[in-house]
Design a protein around this nucleic acid. Structure first.
Lengths: 344, 344
DNA sequence: GCTCAAAATGATAACGCTTACTTTTTGTAT
DNA sequence: ATACAAAAAGTAAGCGTTATCATTTTGAGC
């Protein structure tokens, strides 16, 4: 039911007719307690359904609870969900639990979330910052190990787990061109984030190297959300001279883009337009043709971040470490039009 | 960085040359402090980057932190993710944060998670129990409002948010039959859970009413996981006389089933076999034909659960409430074979 | 039965904060 | 200047634990 209050160690102590210290000893297996007494305490414990108060314990012991904080732009995004899974896997063995918070990619909200998180004194924080500079001062003040994931900050002072975005984008661009495409568009992410910028750069570089033009109309600036993928997808496809291939810079925008293709009369994946997406998504094997994507070791990123934080907890002064993981292309067919002949 | 410790209210007090009580007053806006003093305190506050210790606050005030607990079988499952979103939306306005835990559909793990959750004294717990009876004793001892979502317990003592599973399953079965199918199979869930049982029942009822046989070979007992959907899907499709339609009882198994169809030579969604799934999934609009599903108001379930808990926090003694939400069929095409003619 | 070390238990001070309650300061009326 | 109420600031208890120390109990050896 719900009326009662939680029992305290004092309730247990008085029921078992011992001092709170003895109950505590039984609970934690510290010190020595006579079997007879321990038995009485155990009985009181189960009879009352006592569960120790975690905060009080943490305060008494003085080193907080085994809490790991995590602040990411969007928990619902499978990419961050996978990072969560990785961090979780890595720290679980240390008896840690994870406190997830959502910054909504908004610096103000990020500030709020970092603040409320710190109120509960986590042992470390895994952070995907929303902005290069906006919250630098706040983050610098955090007296707890911080590990940045997926995005840098303007100051290079923290442990870092990154993806070689440029490399991934270059592979995508090259693959599209090798598949015969000349009119290649990009559905880019926000240019004030590292992933957004780096993927755009890699893409543009390849086009330049191959001597292909990138007209302004073929550059769609999205916000990494599904809605912008749809909107920009519709725009690109309704151009007088629509692109024959689109590189979409993240998973959610790819979802939107695919819907835009379905919604545009005459447009058809693999028939009139090719797509390569950045990040694998659950649907990628179910489209026709299946989706070619740049895939990153998402869970591995979380594992590394967790490892870096745990490591820094033990060695607070070691030099910052930067881990750059490589994405790889998963070719499934959507990079190529049914009609097109490979250049070979 | 990371070396330092968190500042305490005492650090602030001594820097501002006031007592801790005054700092507390400034922090909480209680009592009266002269502007000059408040100014000094504010300065110390920001200079030290002080963040109050949430547990200590909660303990001093004596009513815990604004924590809502949530224990579900699988956080990764979009269904529970949506419930989370609903609960989150409902309780956020009360300044609450949510502590998510994963029971893995395993009673032992559920027990563990409920225990660790209670250590942090949540104001309420939203629970999708793993088993009808296994953890009854534990759950009855929880001295905090509990609201069950999606599944009942053997004892009917808690607030409840359910779906009319039978109704949804009946709709699915009827629709398949109306589309001309006579050989209809079911990919059922575990029969020791309410959703698993009720969906099976509804399905079986309709077949009986329509005078159709349900041979044992057409009943696949899965465990609500993708792998079992795949395995059983392969089995059903490789029967000498395979079904022409399959009703899959949850989202993950549907994913597995779709993969099984793709992997089976000669099988093809909408050509050789029709599918209706229970629960909408992101991929449902991307398959060809798009997937017909029984869709439930998932987020709404979370909202209701959140509401019930908040309500019970204010009225601990009110009678238990049961909310049953209706699923509805979303017809997209996969319930019908391309060759088949509607019976009309 | 008595002694005395060893073992078991109890009393109590933290931990960081809030909040009655008490004391000091302020400012106004004389 | 003095008195005095009101306002501001300080003191200390308490929230539920653990850990240190002090005290009591136990039981072995005589």
């Amino acid at each position: 039911m719900s009326g009662q209050k939680h029992k305290t160690i004092r309730d247990v102590a008085s029921l078992a007719r011992v001092s709170t210290a003895t109950v505590s000893r039984v609970l934690n297996g510290t010190g020595t307690v006579r079997p007879r007494t321990a038995e009485r305490v155990q009985q009181a414990l189960t009879q009352l359904g006592y569960v120790p108060n975690g905060w009080a314990q943490a305060m008494a012991v003085g080193n907080g609870i085994n809490l790991m904080g995590m602040v990411v732009p969007d928990i619902q995004n499978p990419f961050f969900a996978a990072i969560y899974a990785g961090v979780s896997e890595e720290v679980r063995s240390h008896g840690m639990i994870i406190w997830m918070a959502n910054s909504g990619d908004d610096p103000a909200q990020e500030r709020t979330e970092l603040y409320s998180l710190q109120r509960y004194r986590p042992h470390g924080i895994v952070l995907t910052p929303t902005h290069l500079t906006e919250n630098l001062a706040v983050i610098e003040k955090i007296p707890t190990p911080v590990c940045l994931v997926d995005r840098r900050l303007a100051v290079d002072q923290w442990d870092l787990v990154l993806i070689d975005n440029k490399h991934g984008a270059r592979q995508a661009a090259k693959t599209l061109i090798e598949a015969g495409h000349r009119d290649v568009a990009i559905l880019a992410g926000p240019q004030d984030t590292t992933p957004g910028r780096e993927r755009f750069e890699g893409f543009r570089e390849v086009l330049q190297e191959e001597g292909l033009a990138l007209p302004p109309a073929y550059v769609g600036l999205g916000d990494f959300r599904e809605s912008s993928g749809y909107r920009i997808g519709r725009e690109l496809l309704s151009l007088d001279h629509p692109p024959t291939a689109i590189f979409s810079c993240n998973n959610l925008m790819t979802m939107g883009l695919l819907q835009a293709i379905q919604a545009t009369p005459g447009a058809s994946l693999g028939e009139s337009v090719s797509v390569i997406g950045f990040d694998d998504i659950p649907i990628s094997t179910f489209t026709t043709p299946p989706l070619t994507v740049v895939s990153r070791p998402m869970k591995e990123m979380g594992i590394q971040a967790g490892r870096l934080i745990l490591d820094r907890m033990d060695h607070p002064t070691r030099a910052k470490e930067t881990i750059i993981l490589m994405p790889h292309l998963v070719i499934r067919g959507s990079e190529r039009l049914a009609a097109a002949k490979p250049r070979v």
